[in-house]
């Protein structure tokens, strides 16, 4: 078994009386691709934000490479965050910067890398997502799929230990989803550790080594994609997975199978 990279124990998050999730524990190991699915409003996005310390969990602990990052004395939050890559549903590129500068800014301002070195690194990352020819374009001049690939490059440039994806294809036109999924599949093949919230069941069945089904702020069931699709413990899991597989990614496993 490989090393755990990101571990969460008993995370709870509430807004007022509204419980977003309660006592969530999970462990992401080196080279894992874990897909989280579940109905909307189940707290999946909030969970990713808590793991990245963008939102503070009410209770529970998080470890990154064995160091507890929820312990305020361990390290600065900013330092932890750069080691956890995050990709958002609506891309959130910096609109006033070119694709290249979007990827570079973390290198020059956070890692204090010299400009030339940062530029080379940023070009490499844009190559990785197949967008080096768009380096000088502004986000407003790119398609949604291209914007999301730049956003992935921006996160990768920081050389994160783990990448969190929050419904990375949900805001895309159907014909643009494929290019983003292709980049994510390639990352998985390269051994990137990934935690992905998505409804792309084709991607999940093909790439994920583990799936988590979340509902009403709790992990209802987890296992391999085959476990959850073919031998779920709960009827509810089967119902939900097959419903969204039908809506979204049903074709994908056949194409690649």
């Amino acid at each position: 078994m490989s090393q755990p990279v990101l571990v969460a124990q008993n995370l709870t998050k509430t807004y007022g009386n509204n419980v977003i999730f309660r006592n969530i524990s999970l462990s992401v190991n080196e080279r894992d691709t874990i897909v989280i699915v579940g109905p909307s409003g189940t707290g999946k996005s909030t969970l990713l934000r808590c793991l990245n310390l963008l939102t503070k969990a009410d209770s529970g602990k998080i470890w990154l490479d064995g160091v507890e990052i929820t312990d305020p004395t361990c390290c600065s939050e900013d330092e932890c965050r750069q080691r956890i890559g995050m990709v958002f549903q609506n891309f959130l590129l910096f609109n006033h910067l070119t694709a290249l500068d979007n990827v570079m800014i973390g290198l020059t301002k956070v890692k204090k890398m010299p400009k030339e070195q940062a530029r080379r690194k940023a070009v490499e990352e844009l190559e990785r997502v197949g967008l080096v020819d768009r380096a000088g374009h502004y986000p407003g001049q790119l398609s949604g799929g291209q914007q999301q690939r730049v956003a992935i490059a921006r996160a990768l440039a920081m050389e994160p230990r783990v990448m969190l994806f929050d419904e990375p294809t949900s805001a895309l036109d159907p014909e643009l989803i494929g290019e983003v999924l292709a980049v994510m599949k390639q990352l998985a093949r390269e051994g990137m550790t990934m935690l992905v919230v998505t409804h792309e069941m084709g991607f999940a069945r093909e790439v994920a080594n583990r799936m988590i089904f979340m509902e009403k702020g709790q992990i209802l069931e987890e296992g391999t994609p085959d476990d959850l699709f073919e031998r779920p413990k709960y009827e509810r899991t089967r119902q939900f997975l097959w419903k969204i597989a039908e809506l979204h990614g049903r074709k994908a496993p056949e194409e690649n199978g």
Binding site: L54, E79, R81, M86, F88, N90, N95, G106, K109, V110
Partner: peptide
């Protein structure tokens, strides 16, 4: 808030995000 979140997510501090991400856009 989205731009702030994106800035923080790559490890920029709050002040750095205001300085390099929010203000250049807000002033324009």
């Amino acid at each position: 808030e989205g731009q702030m979140m994106a800035g923080r997510a790559i490890g920029l501090s709050r002040w750095q995000t205001i300085r390099y991400i929010i203000l250049p856009q807000a002033l324009r």
